[in-house]
Design a binder for these strands. Structure first.
Lengths: 346, 346
DNA sequence: CTGAAAGCGCTTACAG
DNA sequence: CTGAAAGCGCTTACAG
């Protein structure tokens, strides 16, 4: 009638020691590669460990170890399933792996409450540090954790006051570059389609859009600005509205991946994909295979993940220098959609 | 001159107990929500814990707990950065999260050696179970781990002898459906472009290709079969060779995501994308936005991850029934490229 | 309802 | 070079 294994039946150091006829401390030395053990004992311990299928219990050894390291870090991103987060994740894994460190990951789905609970769950597991692409706004509760020795590095968004390292994309400058590209191709009316303004990066990209327009003595027209688009379909509908209005823009600038794709669907549905220019923030797979190819301002998620992981591991290793802000620049990739000439005005 | 924090300075149950003026066992009861504690003591303990910023140490509690659960599972996939693995990952996270379980993940990159070491590292951290999309071929070493209480569920590939649960795609049937679709549209010569034959799923998909051809009394022609394509660019070049040969096929069947995209590039480069039909195994973002849209045999990675995680958690909870093989079927999605008529023969 | 003793699997600090 | 004792932060098994 029993359901469930009540306790794992794994051999312990004690079992290995008994079989090898040595003290448990000698087994510990062999397992940890301490060189001052008689070769004959090393051999006996190793064959005993092999025959029992012994594997050291890292969580137990960690409990007593002086440095208290778990060799595990946490990574909280928007969604482990989306291409951007997944690229960051892979970079973090690659850096961590060089140091024998594992990654515990979680998806935040832009939910501050979820973020709070996942952070706590990581801390309860005593991760060595956390990489956080934040969903929330208030990080005062993190200060206590930092003081308690859990390093935190922010990804994509700056913490409110610079209490920790962060690695961010040059959102404002990148967006300005994209819009300037459209202006340089003769467009006077460029619409903006963007994410929720509660998201700091969305605000920065909008600021870059405004920068580029005012640098060209163009006004930001309220009827050509659509904020708070939460999904591909909301973006698609907003773009359809703009494109079919009595005063459509000559070009579109989209502030994010899914919004770009939504706008692209609208352009295809209206048959305007070769008429209305488009530059999107974020690159995506097959953007070059579209007709026309999609011009984008590309972020570098792998580079962001790599820098963030390296910063975190430096902190874990004891780097006590002041918090740093690392800015990763973007790359404009012209593919056709951003180089269309403006349509003749009606 | 000190570099690195030598020991975390986190308050322990002992500290909370001292501040609250109770025994440490009472703190333990409050932290674990045991109801038989005097309300007045609960309040004192909670305020002491809050003022110290106390957080329980899960790795310590786990060491003594009767069930030995770490509430952590391992997930080893081909590459956490690729869309397929990322979708599986997200499904696993969603299921795990309902049970308060975290996911430690790692990328195998088709490297059996890496798989062996990552598996060991997960076991040393005493994960409750492992989900494995295997890179290797020999899993006898896993039997000992299963006996020691670490459950394993295989994803995408069956273990050699059915020693464990597995969740697989209907690769052979799905590939046959895709090729049958081309044959139904009049194609007599369908080329196959596939992954390394050392990969079981690639062999199964090729078998499905052969099934569909022989069911239509068509022969498998060696000069139209290209195995062992390891990258998008290898696929692109193989497709270019086929398309520019003196006896080109009427249609292409591609066995995997990156191979489909490589073939697609070749079709665009030769201007044949509306002439040569194409059906690909695996769906991808924007496949519907191509000209023509790309017809695919879609896998359901989220469903696979969900089923695998549910199976694993059932095992962890004590399910001792015989190993199961769960097969997730595919869906043919016609979008244009697979419905092109055969070109007139020269 | 509460708490002192023992122990989870290992490492530290110390003696031999 | 080797090992017995103490302790990491918690829970178990017991007494009161």
């Amino acid at each position: 009638m029993s359901s469930g294994v009540d306790r794992r039946d794994r051999p312990t150091m004690r079992d290995v020691a008994a079989l090898a006829g040595v003290g448990i401390k000698t087994v510990s030395r062999v397992v940890n590669g301490v060189p001052t053990v008689a070769p004959e004992l090393v051999a006996r311990v190793q064959s005993a460990a092999d025959s029992l299928g012994y594997r050291p219990n890292l969580t137990a050894s960690n409990l007593r170890r002086a440095d208290g390291r778990t060799h595990t870090i946490g990574l909280l991103v928007e969604n482990v399933g989306n291409p951007y987060s997944a690229a960051v994740h892979r970079a973090v894994e690659d850096v961590a792996r060089e140091h024998g460190i594992f990654v515990l990951s979680g998806s935040l789905d832009e939910d501050p409450d979820r973020e709070y609970h996942l952070l706590r769950a990581l801390i309860d597991r005593r991760v060595d540090g956390v990489l956080l692409a934040p969903a929330g706004e208030d990080y005062r509760h993190l200060v206590a954790e930092q003081e308690a020795g859990t390093s935190v590095v922010f990804i994509d968004r700056r913490p409110a006051s610079l209490i920790a390292d962060c690695v961010v994309t040059a959102n404002r400058a990148g967006a300005a570059t994209g819009v300037r590209h459209l202006v340089a191709h003769g467009h006077r009316s460029v619409a903006y389609l963007g994410d929720r303004t509660s998201i700091a990066t969305a605000r920065e990209r909008f600021a870059g859009y405004a920068d580029a327009l005012s640098a060209a003595d163009l006004a930001v027209a309220a009827n050509w600005v659509r904020h708070d688009l939460r999904s591909m379909d909301e973006a698609r509908r907003a773009a359809l509205e703009l494109l079919t209005s009595e005063n459509p823009p000559q070009a579109l600038f989209t502030g994010q991946n899914l919004i770009t794709i939504g706008a692209l669907r609208a352009l295809h549905e209206t048959g305007l994909e070769s008429t209305i220019a488009l530059v999107g923030f974020d690159d995506f797979l097959l953007a070059d295979m579209m007709r026309p190819g999609i011009t984008v301002v590309a972020q570098r998620p792998y580079e962001i993940g790599r820098l963030a992981a390296e910063r975190l591991l430096a902190r874990v290793a004891g780097d006590g220098s002041p918090p740093q802000e690392l800015v990763v620049d973007t790359a404009l990739i012209p593919r056709g959609s951003g180089e269309l000439p403006p349509p003749a005005r009606p």
